[in-house]
Design a protein around this nucleic acid. Structure first.
Lengths: 113, 113
DNA sequence: TTTGTCTATTCTTATATTCGAATATACTAT
DNA sequence: ATAGTATATTCGAATATAAGAATAGACAAA
């Protein structure tokens, strides 16, 4: 039954399908970071960050351990950094088209008009 | 502003964050396939498949071209297959844990109880 | 033109996600 | 104990996504 594989992958993608959560994964790339530091870097509400961390925890993207007063988060598997690296290449290969598709650009389209 | 990059990546992940759409991408791995063939392989409602294809089109994951009566879909960039390959490795590395996390297993947890 | 086949869109309903605000819990220090 | 700091959870409102049913459009064959 291949669909449980698909479901699993879909859940991982779903967990990564938010700008804040991608930012979190990238911040964890070089080693564990405390929740507080993450919140500071992200510049968002504490509760909101905590919710996103909760999503990543639920899908086992990140691990957390208490360190005295605070909670250290880390990437469970660096393989996920690889995925983001590939996404970076993908992005670079398609910048113009994808930015346009995302509605980030309306200029340069009207050059020939 | 790094956040537009994050937004872009998040949108791609979002597009892939559904079992049916993952299945579609995998079916397109070895070359273009018609919408009809896809629907047949997926075994879902025609309308539903078409909606998922629409999502993939909107995010530029797939390309489509009319071929007489039908519409041929293809992967825009095979790099996405790579991503799925990596996901497969990720999955294999964490099967038991992730299945448990996805609630697919309750057995073997009660061994020591 | 009419009919049949293939594909896309729209509509509705059900469910999920996201956010901020408020609250709760855990640990440290006094 | 009490107070302070760090983190998590709960709640409610707004928005997004998913599915089937029904409909529409595009092309091919007669």
């Amino acid at each position: 039954m291949p669909d449980s594989l698909h479901r699993f992958k879909a859940e991982v993608f779903q967990a990564l399908a938010h700008p804040t959560r991608i930012a979190i994964v990238e911040l964890l790339r070089d080693g564990p970071v405390s929740a507080g530091k993450l919140i500071e870097q992200l510049g968002i509400e504490q509760a909101n960050a905590s919710q996103h961390l909760s999503v990543l925890r639920a899908k086992q993207i990140v691990l957390n351990r208490k360190e005295g007063n605070q909670v250290l988060y880390s990437l469970r598997d660096p393989i996920l950094s690889e995925v983001l690296d590939i996404m970076r290449r993908y992005f670079q290969a398609h910048i113009s088209g994808t930015l346009a598709a995302l509605g980030e650009i309306e200029k340069a389209e009207t050059v020939g008009r």
